[in-house]
Amino acid sequence: MATTRVIGLDIGSSSVRAAELEFGSGGPTGKTPPTLVRLGQVPLPIGAVRDGEVVQPETVASALRQLWAQAKFESKDVVIGVGNQRVIVRELDLPWMPLAQLKASLPYQVGDSLPMSTDDALLDYYPTAEFDGPQGRSVQGMLVAAQRDTVNANVMAVESAGLRPRMVDLNAFALVRALTRGELAGATAAFVDIGASITTVVISSHGTPRLVRSLPSGGHNVTAAVASALGVPLPEAEAIKREVGIGFAVGPDRTSASEAVSAVVRALVESVRNTFVYYAGNNAGAPIDVVVLTGGGSHLPGLGQYLSSASRLPVTLGDPLAGLRSAKTVQREALNGHESVVALPVGLAYGVAA
């Protein structure tokens, strides 16, 4: 039986993570569940990647070389993701035409509606449905417009490490692919990936993305607030942040830390909730059923309950490894309780195999 192996690579603000999946002849939807073959991560120093964009390419390239050596990935072909506030994602209806032709026509169809020149943008289109409109057969979908230099910076860092980017995908779409299995496949779900400095919110209905937002805040912003409030180094602030959490009573010696955590988390949760409200206002017949948290920042104690109270929705931690088989080369138990941090690399691997 023919098999395909794909490596998804997530370049985050605090670490680089990669996952290698093996798919049977039916691909992700085949009868044989995909197998997780290799998995690894290497931390990055603060400032190497800022707001989802590589700013210290050699530092990131060095971390990638270390990651490949440690995890023993055999291939250098990778799928990388992008996602920050310089990547615009919006719903757009277009006259129907074959997909390749439609994508080629994007610079001429969307140029006047973008806050950037199409010469400076990489454009893509994700069709979600077809319908008969006033002008005839039409396509409903999502336009993706990324600043070219943002993508190029990440691609160059990957190539400097000796790797070969086969595809550049949107992180939000990768989240949906990694997690919409089982009950979530038929639900309207809000996926909230809280990284170090970026929070990605994507709402999907029956596995189809309907709304994408990128928020400029994450777990590191909470840590930095604690460090500033207490005058302590970042590693110590990180430990204190995990100790006090959000929504818990603390002693007098932790009041300042608790207030610092609350200020940042409150603002982030309000932005996430506003995204839900915006979606609900435009999709009255398809309310959100569940919120699924992923990313390192999602493990702040009390965050799930805090978001659930603010949004009045059930909140759960996402498990991108549910339903996957694991090869003997993977120490699966090392991820117990923290499976959600590998949602992006797993979803990126799913993309090219779809």
Results as ranks from 00 to 15, higher is better:
48 A>W: 01
353 A>P: 00
11 I>T: 05
9 L>H: 04
154 N>S: 07
196 A>N: 02
248 F>H: 09
101 Q>D: 15
161 A>S: 05
161 A>R: 01
23 F>Y: 13
171 N>F: 00
308 S>T: 02
168 V>S: 06
49 V>T: 11
163 L>R: 02
138 S>A: 07
2 A>H: 10
338 H>Q: 12
245 G>S: 10
245 G>M: 10
142 M>F: 07
71 A>M: 10
135 Q>P: 06
250 V>F: 11
348 L>I: 10
354 A>Y: 06
350 Y>H: 14
24 G>Q: 08
45 P>C: 04
65 R>C: 13
184 L>G: 01
266 R>N: 14
165 P>R: 09
212 V>H: 08
132 D>W: 09
183 E>G: 11
354 A>E: 12
45 P>S: 10
281 G>Y: 06
323 G>A: 01
273 R>W: 04
111 G>K: 15
58 E>T: 14
52 G>M: 03
199 T>A: 05
343 A>R: 06
229 A>T: 00
174 A>M: 11
196 A>Y: 00
260 A>Y: 03
92 L>P: 01
158 V>S: 07
3 T>N: 14
149 D>W: 07
40 G>M: 06
294 T>P: 11
292 V>I: 14
338 H>M: 05
236 E>G: 05
140 Q>E: 12
95 P>G: 12
186 G>T: 04
149 D>C: 03
59 T>D: 11
62 S>T: 14
24 G>K: 00
9 L>E: 06
44 L>T: 10
127 P>W: 01
71 A>H: 00
326 S>F: 13
326 S>G: 07
45 P>I: 02
122 L>Y: 13
102 L>C: 12
251 G>N: 04
124 D>M: 05
90 R>W: 01
26 G>M: 02
61 A>P: 07
74 E>I: 11
303 L>P: 02
323 G>P: 04
205 S>I: 08
19 A>W: 03
190 A>Y: 07
99 L>A: 02
56 Q>E: 14
301 P>C: 01
175 L>H: 08
253 D>F: 15
6 V>H: 08
251 G>H: 05
294 T>M: 13
117 S>V: 01
284 A>L: 15
211 L>N: 08
13 S>G: 09
211 L>W: 11
331 Q>R: 13
150 T>P: 06
274 N>R: 12
325 R>W: 08
169 D>S: 05
236 E>P: 07
205 S>L: 13
214 S>G: 04
299 H>P: 04
291 V>I: 14
275 T>I: 05
108 Y>A: 11
160 S>C: 05
12 G>N: 00
306 Y>D: 02
350 Y>K: 00
123 L>G: 05
168 V>I: 14
259 E>Y: 03
265 V>E: 07
115 P>A: 10
193 D>L: 00
159 E>R: 15
269 V>P: 08
229 A>V: 04
34 P>N: 08
308 S>R: 02
209 P>E: 15
107 P>S: 06
273 R>E: 05
345 P>R: 05
207 G>V: 12
